[in-house]
């Protein structure tokens, strides 16, 4: 059994994503304790190996349709690498790619999966993962024995800088048969919609979540936003309902924002939301549930009802 750790890289064709560096940093720390090597699997993006100096080996699978992501192609390509590299532990993010491939690979390359991971430690020959479940309300401590394991890690759990290092890792090309006969055909990538307000550029954001209850209630927070000269931002359910335009969504699938102040109203603080705003300089959260995870990242919190608080605040700031 090897002690090696393999990171499944993510990239957009131009650059390797932060999550990959975060995983590389975590892998380096684990491997230095267990004496294993750190490797990366890179599907497409062969020109990007120079940024992966934190790994000793980069397994490159090419022959895919360029940078376009396709779940089936990536799964097959990664499986080819897993068979060749035979690592003890595979690390991926809880991104679209991670959600796609972790489960499917765990069947084809039998291995236990731990998802929503925020912490990883070695305990003798066992790995212990800490996961954040129930939308961040509970933590689970999970022991993983056996020769193989796959962990899907929440973005932001480990510092990316620890995994960033230029260098010349050994590059190994892995030929995987049958990539072209895949039953999934990529049809094109859509780049982010840049129309409308650019919430990433705003100094202050008033952000609203499902606690607002209905589109007609947005007026309450709009008045506050106007008083502050700030745009409205939102959690996913608000943009999914079409109550605010998609480019105003904060989080994993929306925008990453870092304003000087982020005022969150009726947002619970699910990991996917926190991913987009936890680095704001000042976070003030209003949520009637004192146990809402948003209070773990907020600097100031209140359990006041947003329908009481927002108008009062708008009035105080407007005058």
């Amino acid at each position: 059994m090897s002690n090696d750790i393999l990171v499944l890289a993510e990239h957009d064709g131009q650059a390797v994503s932060d999550i990959t560096f975060e995983l590389l940093g975590a892998a380096r720390r684990l491997a230095s304790g267990s004496g294993g090597q750190v490797a990366v699997a890179l599907v497409g993006g062969a020109g990007l190996t120079g940024t992966l100096g934190a790994a000793s080996t980069v397994y490159v699978v090419d022959g895919t349709s360029g940078a376009i992501y396709s779940p089936e192609v990536f799964e097959k390509a990664f499986l080819g690498v897993l068979k060749e590299a035979d690592p003890r532990l595979v690390l991926t993010g809880t991104s679209t790619m991670g959600i796609d491939v972790a489960g499917a690979l765990s069947v084809a390359w039998p291995a236990p999966v731990v998802s929503y991971v925020v912490g990883l430690e070695a305990e003798g020959t066992e790995l212990v993962a800490t996961s954040q479940i129930y939308g961040g309300k509970l933590m689970a401590e999970v022991a993983i024995g056996g020769p193989h394991a796959i962990c899907a890690v929440i973005a932001g759990s480990f510092p990316a800088d620890a995994g960033r290092s230029d260098g010349t890792p050994e590059v190994r090309e892995v030929a995987v048969a049958g990539l072209d006969s895949a039953r999934t055909t990529p049809r094109g990538v859509h780049e982010p919609d840049t129309s409308g307000v650019d919430i990433a550029a705003a100094e202050v954001l008033v952000s609203v979540g499902r606690g607002i209850g209905g589109k007609e209630n947005l007026e309450v927070v709009q008045e506050l936003a106007d008083a502050l000269g700030a745009p409205l931002a939102a959690s996913r359910p608000i943009t999914d309902q079409g109550w605010l335009p998609k480019p105003q969504q904060v989080g994993k699938s929306g925008k990453k924002v870092k304003p000087r102040a982020y005022l969150a109203f009726g947002i619970s603080g699910a990991p996917e939301h926190l991913e987009g705003m936890r680095d704001a300089e000042l976070i003030i959260a209003c949520n009637t549930d004192p146990n809402a995870p948003i209070f773990d990242v907020a600097h100031y919190g209140t359990t006041a009802d947003l329908f009481d608080l927002a108008p009062e605040l708008a009035e105080k700031l407007g005058s």
Binding site: Y69, P71, T96, T184, P186, R187, G188, D193, G254
Partner: peptide, 14 residues
């Protein structure tokens, strides 16, 4: 499929 950060990809699946 949403890829995160506002990007998405279209694909045709059998």
């Amino acid at each position: 499929q949403e890829l995160g950060g506002g990007r998405s990809v279209d694909e045709e699946i059998d």
